[in-house]
């Protein structure tokens, strides 16, 4: 095969990566250049009524929400592969679980940082012990402990089994984090995208950009995950 042929194949084999790149640029451009600024109701004391007010802070949502979504997906993937480790003892499943946890931790930290910056300008301080801030902090602590545990076990099979057990035990905490932490404090968090009646609360343009961002970030996670797993497999030759 000539090198020109190989290059052509290379371009077509990786078409979706170019698409991802293009999509990310489009989302970025649309967020800052194309989307109209969201209007939200604000109480006007002068006229005693609700009046629409421009709210430019909405832009961070297009990046912040996909990050916490990817972190959640990553931890779910890690748990599924941890169960697989205990069922089959597969080395590959252990690698996949550890890599997914790593990416989950990375995206979790990014979601916390972006949320914290947003909170500074919306609520007045970087940290407010909002239920969602608290539960993502606990998740970051748990997966930090997961990697501390992994680094303390030299034998590969023992490491795979014990860290899988810890990951599954950590997953048992999810219902408690979801139901208990919100009892501690009133949430300041903006309402979920879908309200109780399942009604969308977004403009069409905003919804399109937001959902594309969500999809692109999810594909990016899949790619990063696959890449990291392949790199380790190539390095260790298995």
């Amino acid at each position: 095969m000539s090198s020109a042929q190989r290059d052509g194949n290379w371009f077509f084999r990786h078409w979706w990566k170019w698409l991802l790149f293009l999509g990310m640029i489009l989302v970025l451009a649309a967020t800052f250049l194309w989307l109209p600024v969201v209007q939200r109701p604000a109480w006007d004391a002068a006229t005693n009524s609700w009046k629409p007010e421009p709210w430019p802070l909405f832009r961070i949502m297009i990046f912040h929400v996909p990050m916490s979504w990817v972190a959640t997906i990553a931890f779910l993937v890690a748990t599924i592969h941890s169960i697989q480790v205990l069922r089959t003892g597969s080395r590959l499943a252990d690698l996949k679980a550890a890599t997914a946890s790593e990416l989950g931790l990375l995206f979790g930290i990014m979601a916390t940082v972006t949320g914290s910056i947003w909170a500074r300008y919306e609520w007045g301080s970087f940290w407010n012990w909002d239920p969602r801030e608290t539960s993502i902090l606990i998740l970051i602590l748990i997966y930090g402990a997961y990697f501390a545990l992994r680094s303390a076990i030299p034998t590969e099979t023992t490491r795979a089994r014990l860290s899988a057990v810890y990951a599954i035990l950590a997953f048992l905490m999810v219902p408690f984090l979801v139901f208990i932490v919100p009892r501690m404090v009133e949430s300041l968090h903006p309402a979920p995208i879908l309200d109780r009646r399942g009604k969308m609360q977004m403009d069409k343009e905003l919804l399109v950009v937001f959902l594309s961002s969500l999809t692109l970030f999810t594909i990016l996670f899949g790619w990063l995950w696959h890449l990291k797993v392949s790199i380790v497999r190539a390095r260790d030759r298995w």
């Binding site: 606990i138 602590l141 748990i142 402990a145 501390a148 545990l149 810890y166 035990l169 950590a170 905490m173 408690f176 984090l177 208990i180």
Partner: peptide, 8 residues
């Protein structure tokens, strides 16, 4: 290891 699990 135990503290994050015990937070609830």
């Amino acid at each position: 290891l135990a503290l994050p699990l015990l937070l609830p």
